[in-house]
Simulated scan of single mutants.
Amino acid sequence: MIPGDETFGGTWPYPARYTEAAGFRQHYVDEGPRDRGHAVVLVHGEPTWGYLWRHLIGPLSRTYRVVVPDHMGFGKSATPADRSYLADEHIHNLETLLVDVLDLDRITLVLHDWGGPIGVGFALRHPERIARIVATNTVLPLGLSGYDELMAANLADSAWFQWACAAHAEGSLEEVLGNAGHTVAHLMLALQGITRPEIITPTWIRAYADHFTSRGECLGVIRFPQQLVAPDPDAPASVAADPSAVAALRAKPAMLVEGMCDTALLPRYVIPAFRAAFPDAPVIELPGAGHFPQEDAPDTLLALIDLFLKTT
């Protein structure tokens, strides 16, 4: 767990806030005006934390309340040893923070990577609290026809999952991810796609690596890919989404901003999956960005989100 007062050379100036409502010490950022009903919630994925959104938090919070949680096992949140780290558990943690602790409504969800399934899982439980959805290099599992086939094709085709499947088969997946403090920058650059390697400074590496000080601190980063390449046969079966909740979400304004150089979630599968769910929603392709538009094209992503907020 990264210390609460760590700013990484001033690149992360946001005061740390904590809650233990979900049974562990969860960190989140809460910036901007509190007297507005609207909240923009930025949800990260694998293997990042709230630091991913650092270029967007300040500008957006001048107008909107901006909430940025760290998932259990990432960033400044704790990594309890007695948790499964399955997606449903992360959904419950997000629900506890946004509903029980902060009681947010009129939420704009901005979702990346595993933040997509986690954010959608929350939204399906509380569609009345959702105002808009912004997806960036992620997928939104709503139980629609054709989605599973697209995701299976991505699993077979993407560099990240080809490596993860091979590493699991040879028994090295947990070893590599269990040493994420040393491997996380390489995984992000080589297997997920960052098109601006010049941003990878010692401070940048430290910001993404500092949580992963031991194998015990890497439980979260290990478990996300394991759920796809080595699913637990004893894990609880997924519950089918409520059709009325799905319909309610599909009626919300939505937008996909897609880094087209992504080598983990390939645009040729992600874009059709999004369009099947939101056929009339805008899809903006960023030809020069990889899996992390927040790193490769932060100004463009910020401008697109700001325009979306102002026009929907």
Score class of each variant (00 low, 15 high):
Trp114Val: 05
Ala164Lys: 08
Arg206Met: 00
Leu60Asp: 08
Pro69Ala: 13
Asp82Trp: 10
Arg83Lys: 14
Ser84Pro: 05
Val270Met: 15
Pro15Cys: 09
Phe24Ser: 10
Ala289Leu: 09
Pro13Phe: 04
Leu144Ala: 09
Pro197Cys: 07
Gly4His: 08
Trp12Gly: 10
His211Tyr: 03
Ile91Phe: 02
Asp148Ser: 14
Gly4Gln: 09
Val41Lys: 09
Pro236Gln: 11
Leu60Gln: 09
Arg34Trp: 01
Ala81Glu: 15
Ile222Asp: 11
Leu42His: 01
Phe278Val: 02
Tyr208Ser: 00
Trp163Cys: 05
Arg129Lys: 14
Gly181Arg: 00
Tyr64Thr: 00
Ile118Ser: 10
Met188Gly: 04
Phe8Lys: 05
Cys165Thr: 15
Leu219Thr: 04
Gly121Phe: 00
Leu94Ser: 09
Arg54Met: 03
Val184Cys: 04
Gly73Gln: 06
Leu219Asn: 09
Asp100Phe: 02
Pro243Gln: 10
Leu307Tyr: 02
Asp105Leu: 06
Ile133Met: 06
Ser61Asp: 13
His291Pro: 01
Ala135Pro: 00
Leu52Phe: 08
Lys310Leu: 12
Arg132Tyr: 03
Leu256His: 02
Ala39Phe: 01
Val184Tyr: 05
Leu304Gly: 03
Arg223Ala: 15
Gln162Thr: 12
Ala297Thr: 14
Glu20Tyr: 07
Asp100Trp: 02
Gly4Trp: 03
Thr63Tyr: 02
Glu198Cys: 06
Ala277Thr: 07
Ala22Phe: 13
Leu187Asn: 13
His291Lys: 04
Pro197Lys: 03
Pro59Gly: 07
Met188Pro: 03
Arg25Leu: 15
Leu249Arg: 09
Glu285Asn: 10
